[in-house]
Design a protein around this nucleic acid. Structure first.
Lengths: 249, 249
DNA sequence: ATATAGATCTCGTCA
DNA sequence: TGACGAGGTCTATAT
């Protein structure tokens, strides 16, 4: 490996640049589990906050990583002309060893970026939409709170029907699986206990665009209701995708 | 922006290289949700399988991404000297627009890597450990199967006690939360139904290193049992971390 | 620090 | 292809 590149990498690490390099290497990880990756060519990224990310040339997820706050040490082995990048996170008790046998490319720079991403169409947006438009549940539904995360658990939307019976709504932004009625059941049982009423007198509703067959069976067995509701951002997008996109720039 | 770099990027895209570049850009995403990221300097990676990943210079997770299988188009705007990288995934109905105002660095190469990571210390390893060492549950426990992926759900370990009562064990690698007794409850209720026996005659055990206070309360309320068990890899690691690491290389 | 649940979750696996 | 649960999940939020 060229000494110049190694010096450049050392300097970039010291100066806390954002560093990206391609290298042939093996990887060992030890921490919450243990992981081993045989020799291959990968992309390795190190950030100023000491995040380390290793990507294989396929797939969406990194194959290995260290969370922000690790410490990196670069050790040259002049005998066999290899580099060892050793990363430790003492507080998390995690450890990575990258044994580099070939340095294919290297780039580093100070990147200026302090912006935060804005995301629309989350589950919170969905529960807000239901709170603001209760008629999508039923004309009799009267919401009284959203995101009730304190006493009774994390209830998405909470209210009363025309008979003043309690109504608890669990939102899912995608197809509801078996965990949805499970969650609803847990919230309703807790709520019933704390209010001193019977769980069967609380109405449970799952609001999601779709529900799986099994989840629907469970929902009905527990005497809850499924209400098909699209996430609001998706509805907006359908209506006028281009206008919505333009709004933010 | 230098024409040479733009041509290099175009060629690399065409040749399906693994590409990494740093750029000042804005990002718009529309798909499962909608996301907007104002101008800033980031690392952008494009893989031969058409994965696209955008990293800000901080944090572990990518700020934006497209899954494998997207299509990328590079459009030059010579008027204001900008580049538009437009990515679409038609089958997933997802879309990203990256507006590049500065190209800071660029590297591309064909990376050879066909290896797959091996991970030890997963939940499966834990259920295998319990199956092979049933005495860690109790001296009377007789396991008959592990990882029972049936119509009843996914049961980690399944067996009988000395009275020939059914025993169902749910494993968690980390602190068990409220979802653990919930899951166990679902498996046991389904199993009881299909076997035509009463759910209360099936013994439920949560095996995990720790359990939260609420989860323990739920566990007891449902007449299940919590058994504190360390994940096996962690135990091995404690015993002789160095030996274990050496074994695999 | 712990607890809890969402996520543009991702990924593998099985029917 | 959908369903389902694990994940070295990660991340944000509340206690």
């Amino acid at each position: 490996m060229p000494n110049k590149k190694i010096e450049e990498l050392k300097t970039a690490l010291k100066k806390k640049h954002t560093i990206v390099f391609m290298a042939k290497c093996t990887v060992k990880y030890s921490g919450r589990a243990e992981a081993f990756l045989e020799s291959g060519e990968r992309v390795i990224m190190i950030k100023p906050d000491n995040t380390l990310i290793i990507h294989q040339p396929f797939g969406n997820a990194p194959v290995n990583y260290m969370k922000p706050g690790a410490m990196h040490k670069l050790i040259e082995n002049k005998k066999d002309n290899t580099l060892l990048l050793s990363s430790t996170n003492n507080s998390l008790n995690e450890y990575i060893e990258i044994n580099i046998t070939k340095l294919i490319s290297l780039n580093s720079a100070i990147l200026n970026d302090s912006t935060k991403i804005r995301i629309f169409g989350t589950e919170k947006d969905m529960s807000d939409f239901i709170y603001d438009n209760p008629k999508v549940i039923s004309k009799d539904f009267r919401p009284v709170s959203r995101e009730e995360q304190t006493k009774y658990g994390f209830i998405d939307v909470f209210g009363y029907d025309k008979n003043k019976s309690l109504v608890v709504i669990e939102c899912k932004r995608y197809t509801a699986g078996p965990t949805a009625p499970q969650q609803l059941r847990r919230y309703i049982e807790r709520l019933a206990k704390s209010k001193g009423i019977k769980a069967k007198n609380i109405k449970g509703i799952i609001a999601a665009p779709k529900i799986t067959k099994n989840a629907l069976a469970m929902t009905k067995e527990l005497n809850y209701e499924f209400k098909s509701i699209e996430p609001p951002a998706y509805m907006e997008k359908k209506k006028d995708k281009q206008n919505r996109l333009k709004k933010y720039f």
